[in-house]
Design a binder for these strands. Structure first.
Length: 777
RNA sequence: GCGGAUGUGGCGGAAUUGGCAGACGCACUGGAUUUAGGUUCCAGCGGGGGAAACUUCGUGAGAGUUCAAGUCUCUCCAUCCGCACCA
């Protein structure tokens, strides 16, 4: 069992690529310059995996593996602008990852610290907070992560927390609201104040964070997180220390969101900085060390959690906010906290002020007296990027006993992975056991030193791969800035919702860092984001643990790549989740076969001697041009390819029924156009038909067909006739029939007469070309 | 609890700007072709009533606006997703 992901192209990818590929092909046919690289997944994980399966060393995963990936993608019929190909696992890419890392290290944006980290026993590595899903690894959904204290490398995403949040304003409209909502939530900005309480006796300060400084006179105790550094000095009693340890363990075991409130009195008191009152210092498991300062003031009267805590430990409840409508909270008789804003009372000189005003004035006062200040807290944490894996970019740092942490000189980049490595999947990084890699001289003093053995999270690679695509063979910089200026920000990024707070935060962060390094000018990577729905099987997301995986390779062998792609586009609009249903796949297979038979038959027909035009020709051309208009409209507005494909099916059905009565003249044009329309969705079939029709060159380099409104226009229009909003009849009339004439005809209809007989026609509503409604009373 | 969505036949879905509800496909039924099965082709297919013409009800529930509501407004219900003791 190797400690590597068994990543493989799955149906979610196929759907993702089908959407992007259809769009790119359409844009090409419309004459646009499109850089259409497939996602990082296409190059990264599966290539690594394939290499491992063949027993190759990942260090050599370069062109041969890209070639293999190419073959896989081609087999699935995806087009990629190969002239700009790049793979994130090539040594050149390692080099620029390391180059960026050193730039960040020099600016304090990359740093190393000891921290409790999420450890996945299955991967044998640590994970970032964003990569933990329901307490489990994002790759191993049933393996709970463990907490381990380790020294690890972090990137300072928190330095950009405010900007990451503020710049979302520019993404509104272009990004799905739910992704923005998830990111807002994840960044978790909250405005408040920090206030220092002094420990009575020792004089030590306890800093707390609150969003409701206006309630501070209602603080009846302080509560520290069990992990708070002050706990060890306040609690000296062995029994209590044991209890605190138990508290931490018990909290970790429980279901999040439903954790029993545990508390312990430290025996110490703190001095309230506003009124000098001594308040007890408690320890509570509901206070999180990772948020704010890890300590709070408990205001039981105005915070529900504090209320529950103080109730169960018999701590005083002191209301200090009165609702504007004048009703007082009832103090000790309260059954729940009152969390609204109102008028401050029982609060010394601030009594009588509205909450909002008191907040500002009290924070100003705290600052003037040097015991606090306004403060903004974010929930976002720094991104832990160390991984104890073999594959991945080595972190370019050397530890020297005298010089400390020394970055690898730029001339020595890239640091590449050693070949002589034993991959056990156990314990620490496999690189630690490779002396030729680990033991190096210090670049500064030349004395023996040790190389960092951790490698970077692969989300580092995915954070900027799309920039490298613009200039993949550059060997003196990550890319040329002018190449970026041409393509960035990305006009349209397409991805799964699963990356809403992983990849999409990291890549936004990376973009801002690169901008501050002066490499690019855009502050955001992508103007527009489209998140396609998931591919479900039997109502739930496909996953290895559930065993409901549909293998694209197997489907391709059975039905062909075009069928799979067509089905992923047809089964639902792209933003919606779709259920995988194999009989639906067969429907698409039938459709493609039907098109193929039709076009090959008609190709022979086109060669027949010319004949008199027939009425069927007109009908077929009309449907053809209506279909062009429909599909063009779908591409230009909403990407509902399910309706595009439905309209292609309608066209094919119509051509089937007209087939025998068509004259040879329009047949060639109809076949060519049908093939071009099919091109973005089923490129293999389209290319095949294109050649059968005697044409040359790639279909997606042909101009997109243009709908002729005259040919698309119906001769006669059908107007529904309603009486009091109920459908009663239809009128078949020429286009420019005058309104008065329509009214006269409608009122004279045999089917209408019984419904208006004996009643007064109040008015007749005519919506030109649409409908006619007779209102009677 | 907070946030984001969604609700239409047996199923996936269509109705893009308030204007014929159910396009297209799947499943099903019948017919043609076939020794047979499969394939292919043709037809039917929301519920009730009717032999049929036709009629009536119908877009989670209830109200409202309108000549007209799946679509707009309000109230409620259900489901899904994300976050969740965030001070």
């Amino acid at each position: 069992m190797l400690p590597y992901p068994s990543g493989k192209l799955h149906m979610g990818h196929v759907r993702n690529y089908s959407i992007g590929d259809a769009l790119a092909r359409y844009m090409w046919m419309r004459g646009h310059d499109v850089l259409h690289p497939m996602g990082w997944d296409a190059f990264g994980l599966p290539a690594e995996n394939a290499a491992l399966q063949r027993g190759q060393h990942p260090r050599d995963w370069t062109l041969s593996n890209i070639a293999q990936m190419k073959a896989q993608m081609y087999r699935l019929g995806f087009s990629i602008d190969w002239s700009r190909e790049v793979a994130t696992c090539e040594p050149q890419y390692y080099r620029w990852n390391q180059w960026f890392f050193i730039k960040m290290f020099e600016r304090g944006l990359a740093y190393r610290k000891e921290a409790l980290l999420n450890w996945c026993p299955e991967c044998g590595t640590v994970l970032a907070n964003e990569q933990v899903v329901n307490g489990c690894c994002w790759r191993h959904e049933t393996t709970p992560v463990e907490q381990r204290a380790m020294r690890q490398w972090f990137l300072k995403t928190t330095a950009y927390a405010g900007e990451l949040l503020d710049d979302m304003k520019e993404l509104e409209g272009g990004w799905p609201e739910r992704v923005l909502a998830m990111q807002r939530n994840w960044i978790g900005r909250s405005e408040g104040a920090e206030v220092d309480f002094t420990v009575d006796g020792s004089g030590e300060k306890v800093r707390i964070f609150t969003t409701r400084i206006d309630t501070i006179y209602g603080a009846t105790c302080l509560i520290l997180a069990p992990e708070h550094p002050l706990v060890s000095t306040l609690v000296t009693n062995e029994d209590d220390r044991l209890k605190i340890k138990e508290m931490i363990d018990a909290t970790a075991r429980q279901d999040p969101g439903n954790i029993e409130k545990l508390g312990l009195f430290t025996g110490a008191y703190a001095i309230h900085p506003f009124n000098g009152v001594r308040v007890p210092i408690w320890i509570g498991n509901f206070v999180l060390m990772g948020y704010g300062t890890g300590a709070i003031m408990a205001v039981p009267a105005h915070d529900q959690r504090d209320f529950e805590f103080c109730r169960s430990f018999d701590i005083a409840i002191a209301p200090v906010i009165r609702p504007v409508d004048g009703l007082l909270p009832v103090g000790e008789a309260m059954t729940e906290a009152w969390t609204g804003y109102g008028i401050v009372e029982n609060s010394g000189e601030w009594s009588g002020l509205p909450s909002e005003e008191a907040r500002i004035k009290m924070a100003t006062y705290a600052k003037a007296h040097d015991f606090g200040a306004e403060s903004i807290t974010y929930r976002l944490k720094d991104w832990g990027i160390s991984r104890q894996r073999y594959w991945g970019t080595p972190i370019p740092i050397i530890y020297c006993p005298t010089c400390g942490m020394v970055p690898v000189p730029e001339s020595d980049l890239p640091v590449i992975l050693p070949l002589d490595v034993q991959i056990t999947g156990k314990g620490r990084s496999p690189l630690e056991a490779v002396p030729s890699f680990i033991d190096v001289p210090c670049p500064r003093c030349g004395e023996p030193a040790r190389r960092e053995s951790d490698t970077m999270d692969t989300f580092v690679d995915s954070s900027w791969y799309f920039y490298r695509y613009c200039d993949p063979h550059n060997d003196h910089a990550p890319f040329d800035s002018t190449a970026i200026a041409k393509w960035f920000p990305i006009d349209q990024y397409i991805g799964g919702i699963t990356h809403a707070i992983l990849h999409l935060i990291y890549s936004r962060f990376w973009t801002k860092v690169m901008r501050d390094l002066g490499l690019i000018t855009n502050a955001e990577p992508a103007k527009n984001l489209f998140t396609q729905g998931m591919v479900l099987k039997d109502g739930s997301a496909m996953s290895k643990s559930k065993g409901n995986i549909v293998d694209p390779d197997e489907m391709t062998r059975k039905y062909g790549a075009d069928t799979c792609r067509l089905y992923t586009l047809f089964a639902a609009p792209p933003e919606r989740d779709m259920d995988w249903n194999e009989s639906g796949v067969e429907g698409q297979y039938r459709f493609l076969a039907r098109v193929y038979r039709l076009v090959t038959r008609l190709a022979d027909r086109a060669c027949e001697a010319p004949a008199q035009p027939r009425s069927s020709d007109r009908k077929a051309l009309r449907k053809l041009h209506q279909t062009i208009a429909k599909i063009t409209g779908d591409f230009d507005s909403r990407w509902h390819f399910n309706t595009s494909i439905a309209s292609l099916m309608e066209l094919v059905n119509e051509l089937y029924s007209l087939e025998t009565s068509l004259s040879p003249a329009p047949v060639a044009e109809i076949c060519r156009t049908l093939t071009l329309l099919l091109g973005p969705f089923a490129p293999y079939t389209a290319q095949d038909l294109w050649e059968i029709l005697g044409q040359t060159g790639p279909v997606f380099r042909q101009p997109w067909p243009i709908s002729d409104p005259e040919l698309a226009k119906e001769d006669m229009i059908e107007i529904p006739v309603q009486v009091n909003g109920k459908l009663r009849a239809h009128l078949y009339v020429p286009h420019e029939t005058p309104v008065a004439e329509l009214e006269r005809m409608a009122l004279a209809l045999e089917k209408v007469k019984p419904f208006i007989a004996g009643k007064t026609v109040v008015k007749v509503i005519v919506v030109p070309g649409k409908l006619l409604n007779i209102v009677v009373r």
